[in-house]
Design a protein around this nucleic acid. Structure first.
Length: 478
DNA sequence: CGCACTAGTTATAAAACTAGTGCGGTGCTTTATT
Protein backbone atom coordinates (compact mmCIF):
# COMPACT_ATOMS: atom_id res chain seq x y z
CA UNK A 1 0.00 0.00 0.00
CA UNK A 2 1.36 3.40 -0.96
CA UNK A 3 1.11 5.13 2.39
CA UNK A 4 2.89 8.26 1.25
CA UNK A 5 0.31 8.83 -1.44
CA UNK A 6 -2.54 8.39 1.04
CA UNK A 7 -0.78 10.74 3.43
CA UNK A 8 -0.57 13.43 0.78
CA UNK A 9 -4.00 12.94 -0.78
CA UNK A 10 -6.10 12.54 2.33
CA UNK A 11 -4.12 14.45 4.94
CA UNK A 12 -2.07 16.89 2.91
CA UNK A 13 1.33 16.03 4.40
CA UNK A 14 4.45 15.52 2.31
CA UNK A 15 6.10 13.03 4.64
CA UNK A 16 5.72 11.10 7.88
CA UNK A 17 7.20 12.17 11.16
CA UNK A 18 9.57 9.77 12.90
CA UNK A 19 7.79 6.62 14.01
CA UNK A 20 4.43 7.29 12.38
CA UNK A 21 4.89 5.13 9.33
CA UNK A 22 6.18 2.17 11.35
CA UNK A 23 3.22 2.31 13.72
CA UNK A 24 0.75 2.51 10.84
CA UNK A 25 2.35 -0.44 9.06
CA UNK A 26 2.22 -2.59 12.21
CA UNK A 27 -1.47 -1.84 12.57
CA UNK A 28 -2.23 -2.58 8.93
CA UNK A 29 -0.44 -5.91 9.50
CA UNK A 30 -2.96 -6.49 12.33
CA UNK A 31 -0.36 -6.34 15.07
CA UNK A 32 -1.02 -4.91 18.54
CA UNK A 33 1.22 -1.88 18.92
CA UNK A 34 2.48 0.32 21.73
CA UNK A 35 3.70 3.69 20.48
CA UNK A 36 5.79 5.86 22.76
CA UNK A 37 5.93 9.13 20.87
CA UNK A 38 6.56 12.61 22.23
CA UNK A 39 3.54 14.91 22.33
CA UNK A 40 3.24 16.94 19.18
CA UNK A 41 4.65 14.14 17.02
CA UNK A 42 1.31 13.55 15.37
CA UNK A 43 -0.05 10.67 17.38
CA UNK A 44 -3.56 11.03 16.06
CA UNK A 45 -2.43 10.37 12.49
CA UNK A 46 -1.35 6.92 13.68
CA UNK A 47 -5.01 5.92 13.94
CA UNK A 48 -6.62 8.33 11.50
CA UNK A 49 -4.75 6.99 8.51
CA UNK A 50 -5.39 3.28 9.17
CA UNK A 51 -8.96 4.15 10.10
CA UNK A 52 -9.53 5.84 6.80
CA UNK A 53 -8.36 2.87 4.72
CA UNK A 54 -9.79 0.00 6.79
CA UNK A 55 -13.39 -1.08 6.86
CA UNK A 56 -15.28 -0.54 10.10
CA UNK A 57 -15.06 2.01 12.92
CA UNK A 58 -12.15 3.09 15.09
CA UNK A 59 -12.83 3.14 18.83
CA UNK A 60 -10.67 5.62 20.75
CA UNK A 61 -10.61 5.37 24.53
CA UNK A 62 -9.63 8.70 26.03
CA UNK A 63 -9.06 9.68 29.68
CA UNK A 64 -10.65 13.14 29.64
CA UNK A 65 -13.88 14.41 28.17
CA UNK A 66 -12.21 17.71 27.29
CA UNK A 67 -9.49 15.82 25.44
CA UNK A 68 -11.91 13.77 23.36
CA UNK A 69 -14.02 16.83 22.54
CA UNK A 70 -10.90 18.67 21.48
CA UNK A 71 -9.67 15.87 19.24
CA UNK A 72 -13.08 15.26 17.71
CA UNK A 73 -13.33 18.96 16.97
CA UNK A 74 -9.93 19.02 15.28
CA UNK A 75 -10.88 16.07 13.12
CA UNK A 76 -14.11 17.74 12.07
CA UNK A 77 -12.22 20.91 11.22
CA UNK A 78 -9.93 18.83 9.03
CA UNK A 79 -12.88 17.53 7.08
CA UNK A 80 -13.66 14.22 8.81
CA UNK A 81 -17.36 14.46 9.65
CA UNK A 82 -18.01 10.86 10.72
CA UNK A 83 -16.61 11.43 14.19
CA UNK A 84 -18.36 11.47 17.55
CA UNK A 85 -17.40 11.88 21.21
CA UNK A 86 -19.88 10.00 23.36
CA UNK A 87 -19.94 11.27 26.95
CA UNK A 88 -22.02 12.78 29.72
CA UNK A 89 -21.81 16.27 28.20
CA UNK A 90 -24.40 15.11 25.67
CA UNK A 91 -28.08 15.21 26.58
CA UNK A 92 -29.61 11.78 27.13
CA UNK A 93 -31.75 11.90 23.98
CA UNK A 94 -28.75 12.84 21.86
CA UNK A 95 -26.76 9.99 23.32
CA UNK A 96 -29.57 7.55 22.52
CA UNK A 97 -29.72 8.80 18.96
CA UNK A 98 -25.97 8.33 18.49
CA UNK A 99 -26.04 4.87 20.04
CA UNK A 100 -28.80 3.90 17.60
CA UNK A 101 -26.60 4.61 14.60
CA UNK A 102 -23.17 3.94 15.98
CA UNK A 103 -22.01 2.01 12.92
CA UNK A 104 -22.31 5.17 10.84
CA UNK A 105 -19.43 6.83 12.68
CA UNK A 106 -15.90 6.15 11.56
CA UNK A 107 -14.24 7.46 14.74
CA UNK A 108 -15.88 6.96 18.14
CA UNK A 109 -14.34 8.60 21.23
CA UNK A 110 -15.36 7.30 24.66
CA UNK A 111 -14.13 7.13 28.26
CA UNK A 112 -13.28 3.86 30.03
CA UNK A 113 -16.32 4.44 32.26
CA UNK A 114 -18.62 4.56 29.24
CA UNK A 115 -17.14 1.31 27.98
CA UNK A 116 -18.05 -0.34 31.29
CA UNK A 117 -21.72 0.41 30.80
CA UNK A 118 -23.67 -2.69 29.77
CA UNK A 119 -25.95 -0.91 27.31
CA UNK A 120 -23.08 0.72 25.50
CA UNK A 121 -20.70 -2.22 25.32
CA UNK A 122 -23.51 -4.43 23.99
CA UNK A 123 -24.14 -1.91 21.21
CA UNK A 124 -20.46 -1.73 20.51
CA UNK A 125 -20.16 -5.48 20.21
CA UNK A 126 -22.62 -5.44 17.34
CA UNK A 127 -20.69 -3.08 15.11
CA UNK A 128 -17.55 -3.73 13.14
CA UNK A 129 -14.39 -2.26 14.61
CA UNK A 130 -11.24 -1.91 12.53
CA UNK A 131 -9.05 -0.66 15.34
CA UNK A 132 -9.14 0.06 19.09
CA UNK A 133 -6.97 2.91 20.35
CA UNK A 134 -6.10 3.69 23.96
CA UNK A 135 -4.94 7.27 24.11
CA UNK A 136 -2.68 8.40 26.98
CA UNK A 137 -2.32 4.73 27.83
CA UNK A 138 -0.02 5.40 30.82
CA UNK A 139 -3.20 6.37 32.69
CA UNK A 140 -3.68 2.68 33.43
CA UNK A 141 -0.71 2.87 35.82
CA UNK A 142 -1.33 6.36 37.07
CA UNK A 143 -5.06 5.97 37.72
CA UNK A 144 -6.27 2.45 37.11
CA UNK A 145 -5.44 0.76 40.38
CA UNK A 146 -6.69 3.20 42.99
CA UNK A 147 -8.64 5.94 41.28
CA UNK A 148 -10.40 4.93 38.06
CA UNK A 149 -10.95 1.18 38.18
CA UNK A 150 -12.78 1.23 34.87
CA UNK A 151 -9.34 1.41 33.30
CA UNK A 152 -8.84 -2.16 34.50
CA UNK A 153 -12.14 -3.22 32.95
CA UNK A 154 -10.99 -2.23 29.45
CA UNK A 155 -9.11 -5.52 29.40
CA UNK A 156 -12.31 -7.45 30.14
CA UNK A 157 -13.98 -5.78 27.19
CA UNK A 158 -11.04 -6.46 24.89
CA UNK A 159 -10.94 -10.15 25.75
CA UNK A 160 -13.49 -10.75 23.02
CA UNK A 161 -12.32 -13.19 20.41
CA UNK A 162 -11.44 -11.75 17.03
CA UNK A 163 -10.98 -8.23 18.23
CA UNK A 164 -9.20 -5.82 15.91
CA UNK A 165 -5.61 -4.73 16.55
CA UNK A 166 -5.00 -2.51 19.53
CA UNK A 167 -2.94 0.65 19.57
CA UNK A 168 -1.73 2.05 22.91
CA UNK A 169 -0.44 5.63 22.68
CA UNK A 170 1.59 7.48 25.25
CA UNK A 171 4.39 10.04 25.50
CA UNK A 172 6.14 8.63 28.55
CA UNK A 173 6.36 5.02 29.69
CA UNK A 174 8.84 3.39 32.04
CA UNK A 175 9.21 -0.37 32.34
CA UNK A 176 6.37 -0.74 34.83
CA UNK A 177 3.96 1.33 32.75
CA UNK A 178 4.87 -0.72 29.70
CA UNK A 179 4.17 -3.94 31.60
CA UNK A 180 0.86 -2.64 32.92
CA UNK A 181 -0.22 -1.64 29.42
CA UNK A 182 0.62 -5.05 27.94
CA UNK A 183 -0.82 -7.04 30.80
CA UNK A 184 -4.01 -5.18 31.68
CA UNK A 185 -5.01 -4.45 28.10
CA UNK A 186 -4.29 -8.09 27.28
CA UNK A 187 -2.18 -7.20 24.28
CA UNK A 188 -0.81 -10.03 22.19
CA UNK A 189 2.93 -9.87 21.44
CA UNK A 190 2.76 -6.12 20.92
CA UNK A 191 5.34 -4.30 18.87
CA UNK A 192 6.80 -1.43 20.84
CA UNK A 193 7.62 1.64 18.80
CA UNK A 194 9.85 3.90 20.87
CA UNK A 195 11.17 7.35 20.39
CA UNK A 196 13.91 8.71 22.65
CA UNK A 197 12.61 10.70 25.60
CA UNK A 198 15.72 12.87 25.66
CA UNK A 199 14.97 16.54 25.19
CA UNK A 200 18.34 18.20 24.66
CA UNK A 201 16.86 21.70 24.65
CA UNK A 202 15.60 21.38 28.23
CA UNK A 203 18.06 22.16 31.01
CA UNK A 204 17.28 20.77 34.46
CA UNK A 205 18.03 22.31 37.80
CA UNK A 206 17.42 21.38 41.39
CA UNK A 207 17.21 24.20 43.92
CA UNK A 208 17.49 23.22 47.55
CA UNK A 209 15.68 25.43 50.08
CA UNK A 210 14.59 25.10 53.72
CA UNK A 211 11.05 26.43 53.92
CA UNK A 212 8.04 27.09 51.76
CA UNK A 213 8.55 30.84 52.27
CA UNK A 214 11.92 30.44 50.61
CA UNK A 215 10.21 28.63 47.75
CA UNK A 216 7.71 31.45 47.35
CA UNK A 217 10.48 34.06 47.34
CA UNK A 218 12.51 32.12 44.77
CA UNK A 219 9.51 31.73 42.49
CA UNK A 220 8.59 35.41 42.74
CA UNK A 221 12.08 36.53 41.85
CA UNK A 222 12.42 33.99 39.08
CA UNK A 223 9.12 34.81 37.42
CA UNK A 224 9.78 38.56 37.67
CA UNK A 225 13.22 38.32 36.07
CA UNK A 226 12.96 35.57 33.49
CA UNK A 227 10.91 34.73 30.42
CA UNK A 228 7.65 32.87 30.17
CA UNK A 229 5.41 31.34 29.26
CA UNK A 230 5.67 28.84 32.05
CA UNK A 231 3.91 26.40 34.32
CA UNK A 232 4.39 26.17 38.07
CA UNK A 233 3.35 22.82 39.49
CA UNK A 234 2.26 22.80 43.13
CA UNK A 235 1.16 19.92 45.34
CA UNK A 236 -2.16 21.32 46.51
CA UNK A 237 -4.97 23.48 45.18
CA UNK A 238 -4.46 25.89 48.03
CA UNK A 239 -0.78 26.32 47.28
CA UNK A 240 -1.50 26.84 43.55
CA UNK A 241 -4.00 29.59 44.42
CA UNK A 242 -1.62 31.14 46.93
CA UNK A 243 1.26 31.31 44.45
CA UNK A 244 -0.98 32.75 41.76
CA UNK A 245 -2.08 35.55 44.10
CA UNK A 246 1.50 36.32 45.13
CA UNK A 247 2.51 36.63 41.49
CA UNK A 248 -0.55 38.66 40.52
CA UNK A 249 0.50 41.19 43.15
CA UNK A 250 3.80 41.48 41.26
CA UNK A 251 1.88 42.37 38.13
CA UNK A 252 2.33 39.01 36.39
CA UNK A 253 -0.40 37.71 34.08
CA UNK A 254 -1.06 34.46 35.92
CA UNK A 255 -3.96 32.25 36.99
CA UNK A 256 -4.24 29.08 39.01
CA UNK A 257 -5.66 25.87 37.59
CA UNK A 258 -6.91 22.82 39.47
CA UNK A 259 -9.85 20.45 39.77
CA UNK A 260 -11.53 22.64 42.39
CA UNK A 261 -12.44 25.19 39.71
CA UNK A 262 -15.51 25.20 37.52
CA UNK A 263 -15.06 23.39 34.22
CA UNK A 264 -15.85 26.58 32.27
CA UNK A 265 -13.20 28.55 34.16
CA UNK A 266 -10.68 25.82 33.55
CA UNK A 267 -11.35 25.88 29.80
CA UNK A 268 -11.07 29.66 29.65
CA UNK A 269 -7.85 29.75 31.68
CA UNK A 270 -6.29 27.06 29.51
CA UNK A 271 -7.37 28.92 26.38
CA UNK A 272 -5.95 32.21 27.67
CA UNK A 273 -2.66 30.50 28.37
CA UNK A 274 -2.58 29.03 24.87
CA UNK A 275 -3.34 32.43 23.35
CA UNK A 276 -0.66 34.17 25.37
CA UNK A 277 -3.02 36.31 27.46
CA UNK A 278 -1.68 34.54 30.53
CA UNK A 279 2.05 34.19 30.88
CA UNK A 280 2.08 31.75 33.77
CA UNK A 281 -0.16 29.04 35.18
CA UNK A 282 0.06 27.82 38.78
CA UNK A 283 -1.41 24.35 38.70
CA UNK A 284 -1.83 20.99 40.34
CA UNK A 285 -1.21 17.89 38.25
CA UNK A 286 -4.69 18.43 36.76
CA UNK A 287 -3.07 20.71 34.17
CA UNK A 288 -1.25 19.39 31.16
CA UNK A 289 -2.86 16.58 29.21
CA UNK A 290 -4.10 17.93 25.92
CA UNK A 291 -2.35 21.28 26.27
CA UNK A 292 -0.94 21.97 22.83
CA UNK A 293 1.42 24.85 23.38
CA UNK A 294 4.84 24.76 21.75
CA UNK A 295 6.56 27.77 23.24
CA UNK A 296 6.49 27.00 26.98
CA UNK A 297 9.91 28.19 28.17
CA UNK A 298 9.85 27.10 31.81
CA UNK A 299 8.38 24.49 34.11
CA UNK A 300 8.89 25.06 37.82
CA UNK A 301 8.12 22.41 40.44
CA UNK A 302 7.20 23.70 43.87
CA UNK A 303 7.03 20.11 45.11
CA UNK A 304 8.22 16.60 44.47
CA UNK A 305 6.20 14.66 41.87
CA UNK A 306 5.36 11.12 42.98
CA UNK A 307 7.30 9.35 40.21
CA UNK A 308 10.11 10.06 37.76
CA UNK A 309 7.68 9.28 34.94
CA UNK A 310 5.26 11.95 36.19
CA UNK A 311 8.11 14.43 36.57
CA UNK A 312 9.44 13.85 33.06
CA UNK A 313 5.95 14.09 31.66
CA UNK A 314 5.31 17.45 33.33
CA UNK A 315 8.72 18.81 32.41
CA UNK A 316 8.27 17.57 28.85
CA UNK A 317 5.56 20.17 28.28
CA UNK A 318 8.32 22.77 27.94
CA UNK A 319 10.18 23.59 24.75
CA UNK A 320 8.22 21.57 22.23
CA UNK A 321 9.27 24.11 19.60
CA UNK A 322 12.86 22.93 20.06
CA UNK A 323 13.99 26.27 21.47
CA UNK A 324 15.80 26.33 24.85
CA UNK A 325 13.65 25.66 27.92
CA UNK A 326 14.35 25.42 31.63
CA UNK A 327 13.02 23.00 34.25
CA UNK A 328 13.55 23.91 37.89
CA UNK A 329 12.58 21.83 40.90
CA UNK A 330 12.49 23.33 44.38
CA UNK A 331 13.25 20.83 47.07
CA UNK A 332 13.40 20.67 50.84
CA UNK A 333 13.90 17.46 52.82
CA UNK A 334 10.39 17.37 54.35
CA UNK A 335 8.86 17.29 50.86
CA UNK A 336 9.34 13.55 50.79
CA UNK A 337 6.93 13.00 53.70
CA UNK A 338 4.35 15.35 52.24
CA UNK A 339 4.41 13.59 48.87
CA UNK A 340 4.37 10.22 50.54
CA UNK A 341 1.28 11.14 52.51
CA UNK A 342 -0.60 12.34 49.45
CA UNK A 343 0.02 9.22 47.39
CA UNK A 344 -0.96 6.92 50.25
CA UNK A 345 -3.95 8.88 51.55
CA UNK A 346 -6.58 7.69 49.12
CA UNK A 347 -5.68 4.02 49.30
CA UNK A 348 -8.07 1.97 51.39
CA UNK A 349 -6.40 0.70 54.56
CA UNK A 350 -6.34 -2.98 55.45
CA UNK A 351 -8.93 -2.55 58.20
CA UNK A 352 -11.31 -0.75 55.84
CA UNK A 353 -10.93 -3.45 53.20
CA UNK A 354 -11.65 -6.24 55.71
CA UNK A 355 -14.58 -4.33 57.15
CA UNK A 356 -16.15 -3.62 53.75
CA UNK A 357 -15.65 -7.20 52.63
CA UNK A 358 -17.29 -8.50 55.81
CA UNK A 359 -20.28 -6.15 55.50
CA UNK A 360 -20.91 -7.17 51.90
CA UNK A 361 -20.61 -10.83 52.96
CA UNK A 362 -23.26 -10.21 55.61
CA UNK A 363 -25.61 -8.88 52.98
CA UNK A 364 -25.37 -5.13 53.46
CA UNK A 365 -25.88 -3.05 50.34
CA UNK A 366 -22.63 -1.69 48.88
CA UNK A 367 -23.74 1.83 49.76
CA UNK A 368 -24.33 1.24 53.44
CA UNK A 369 -21.35 -1.10 53.74
CA UNK A 370 -18.93 1.49 52.35
CA UNK A 371 -20.34 4.06 54.77
CA UNK A 372 -19.90 1.69 57.71
CA UNK A 373 -16.35 0.93 56.64
CA UNK A 374 -15.74 4.72 56.31
CA UNK A 375 -14.59 4.32 52.72
CA UNK A 376 -14.40 7.21 50.31
CA UNK A 377 -16.57 7.01 47.20
CA UNK A 378 -13.46 6.39 45.14
CA UNK A 379 -12.26 3.71 47.54
CA UNK A 380 -15.60 1.95 47.31
CA UNK A 381 -15.68 1.79 43.55
CA UNK A 382 -12.11 0.56 43.43
CA UNK A 383 -12.88 -2.18 45.94
CA UNK A 384 -16.03 -3.17 44.06
CA UNK A 385 -13.87 -3.88 41.04
CA UNK A 386 -11.37 -5.95 43.00
CA UNK A 387 -14.09 -7.90 44.80
CA UNK A 388 -15.57 -8.94 41.46
CA UNK A 389 -12.22 -10.38 40.44
CA UNK A 390 -10.26 -11.49 43.52
CA UNK A 391 -10.47 -13.07 46.96
CA UNK A 392 -9.99 -11.00 50.10
CA UNK A 393 -6.45 -12.25 50.62
CA UNK A 394 -5.52 -11.46 47.02
CA UNK A 395 -6.96 -7.96 47.37
CA UNK A 396 -4.99 -7.29 50.53
CA UNK A 397 -1.85 -8.50 48.84
CA UNK A 398 -2.49 -6.34 45.79
CA UNK A 399 -2.94 -3.19 47.85
CA UNK A 400 0.10 -4.00 49.91
CA UNK A 401 2.15 -4.32 46.72
CA UNK A 402 0.68 -1.15 45.29
CA UNK A 403 1.62 0.77 48.40
CA UNK A 404 5.17 -0.61 48.36
CA UNK A 405 5.51 0.22 44.68
CA UNK A 406 4.38 3.78 45.23
CA UNK A 407 6.92 4.27 47.99
CA UNK A 408 9.64 2.81 45.85
CA UNK A 409 8.79 5.12 42.95
CA UNK A 410 8.88 8.12 45.23
CA UNK A 411 12.21 6.94 46.63
CA UNK A 412 13.59 6.87 43.09
CA UNK A 413 12.35 10.41 42.53
CA UNK A 414 14.07 11.55 45.73
CA UNK A 415 17.19 9.79 44.53
CA UNK A 416 17.03 11.71 41.26
CA UNK A 417 16.87 14.97 43.17
CA UNK A 418 19.41 14.31 45.92
CA UNK A 419 21.66 11.68 44.37
CA UNK A 420 24.18 14.14 42.96
CA UNK A 421 24.23 12.47 39.54
CA UNK A 422 23.50 14.09 36.20
CA UNK A 423 19.73 14.58 36.20
CA UNK A 424 19.31 13.99 32.49
CA UNK A 425 21.30 10.77 32.49
CA UNK A 426 19.68 9.50 35.65
CA UNK A 427 16.19 10.15 34.22
CA UNK A 428 17.01 8.59 30.86
CA UNK A 429 18.49 5.49 32.48
CA UNK A 430 15.28 5.16 34.49
CA UNK A 431 13.53 4.71 31.15
CA UNK A 432 16.19 2.29 29.96
CA UNK A 433 17.95 4.73 27.68
CA UNK A 434 21.70 5.14 27.58
CA UNK A 435 21.67 8.88 27.08
CA UNK A 436 23.05 10.55 24.01
CA UNK A 437 25.32 13.52 23.71
CA UNK A 438 25.26 15.87 26.64
CA UNK A 439 24.02 19.34 25.72
CA UNK A 440 25.98 22.39 26.92
CA UNK A 441 23.23 23.47 29.28
CA UNK A 442 22.54 20.06 30.77
CA UNK A 443 21.65 20.31 34.44
CA UNK A 444 22.60 21.89 37.74
CA UNK A 445 24.78 18.90 38.57
CA UNK A 446 26.82 19.10 35.37
CA UNK A 447 26.98 22.85 35.81
CA UNK A 448 24.88 25.46 34.09
CA UNK A 449 26.40 28.62 32.70
CA UNK A 450 24.34 31.71 33.30
CA UNK A 451 21.54 30.82 30.98
CA UNK A 452 21.39 34.12 29.19
CA UNK A 453 18.29 33.58 27.10
CA UNK A 454 16.21 33.16 30.25
CA UNK A 455 16.74 36.80 31.15
CA UNK A 456 16.06 38.26 27.71
CA UNK A 457 12.46 39.18 28.16
CA UNK A 458 11.00 39.74 24.74
CA UNK A 459 8.40 42.34 23.89
CA UNK A 460 4.90 41.04 24.37
CA UNK A 461 2.68 40.78 21.30
CA UNK A 462 0.18 43.60 21.06
CA UNK A 463 -3.44 42.99 21.98
CA UNK A 464 -4.50 43.58 18.40
CA UNK A 465 -2.80 40.42 17.26
CA UNK A 466 -4.79 38.29 19.63
CA UNK A 467 -8.23 36.84 19.26
CA UNK A 468 -11.11 38.90 20.56
CA UNK A 469 -13.04 37.58 23.55
CA UNK A 470 -16.04 36.66 21.37
CA UNK A 471 -13.92 34.70 18.95
CA UNK A 472 -12.30 32.89 21.81
CA UNK A 473 -15.63 31.83 23.28
CA UNK A 474 -16.76 30.66 19.85
CA UNK A 475 -13.62 28.59 19.58
CA UNK A 476 -14.27 27.10 22.99
CA UNK A 477 -17.75 26.09 21.97
CA UNK A 478 -16.34 24.49 18.83
C1' DC B 1 3.89 13.22 58.27
C1' DG B 2 4.52 18.39 58.20
C1' DC B 3 2.63 22.97 57.67
C1' DA B 4 -0.40 26.94 58.52
C1' DC B 5 -3.45 28.62 61.37
C1' DT B 6 -6.03 29.46 65.81
C1' DA B 7 -6.88 29.70 70.69
C1' DG B 8 -5.07 29.80 75.02
C1' DT B 9 -1.35 30.93 78.18
C1' DT B 10 1.60 34.10 80.65
C1' DA B 11 0.88 37.84 84.41
C1' DT B 12 0.86 45.20 86.94
C1' DA B 13 1.77 44.77 79.20
C1' DA B 14 2.89 43.09 74.75
C1' DA B 15 4.69 39.58 72.16
C1' DA B 16 6.17 35.11 72.29
C1' DC B 17 5.56 30.52 73.34
C1' DT B 18 2.55 26.00 73.31
C1' DA B 19 -1.04 22.81 72.24
C1' DG B 20 -4.65 21.65 69.35
C1' DT B 21 -6.90 21.46 64.73
C1' DG B 22 -7.56 21.01 59.85
C1' DC B 23 -5.68 20.06 55.63
C1' DG B 24 -3.23 17.77 51.73
C1' DG B 25 -4.30 15.11 43.78
C1' DT B 26 -5.88 13.16 39.62
C1' DG B 27 -12.27 12.21 36.62
C1' DC B 28 -15.69 9.69 34.91
C1' DT B 29 -20.68 8.90 35.60
C1' DT B 30 -25.52 9.96 37.45
C1' DT B 31 -32.69 8.04 33.40
C1' DA B 32 -35.51 7.21 38.99
C1' DT B 33 -40.50 5.08 42.38
C1' DT B 34 -41.97 11.18 44.95
Amino acid sequence: MDLNRILLERFGYESFRPGQEEVIRHLLDKRDTIAILPTGMGKSLCYQLPGSVLEGSVLIISPLVSLMEDQAMRMRQNGEKRVVALNSFLPYSERQRIMGQLQNYKFIFISPEMLSQEAFSRKLNRIRLSLVVIDEAHCISQWGFDFRPDYLRIGDFLKLKGRPPLLALTATADEKVLNDIQHYFKMEKPIVQRHSLDRPNISYSIVEVHSSQEKTAWIKERVAQTVGPGIIYASSRKRADELAIELQLEGIAVQSYHAGKEQDDRSIIQEQFLMGDLEWICATNAFGMGVHKDDIRQVIHDHLPPTIAAYIQEVGRAGRDGQPAAASLLYMPTDEQTSSFIIQSDMPREEEIRHYHRMIGEGHSPGSASELASLTETGKRVLDYYMEHYSLEEILLKFHRLSTEKNEQLRQMVQLVTGGLCIRQRALSYFGEMGGTKPVECCSICGLETVKWLYEKSIKPSAAEKFSWDERITNLLG
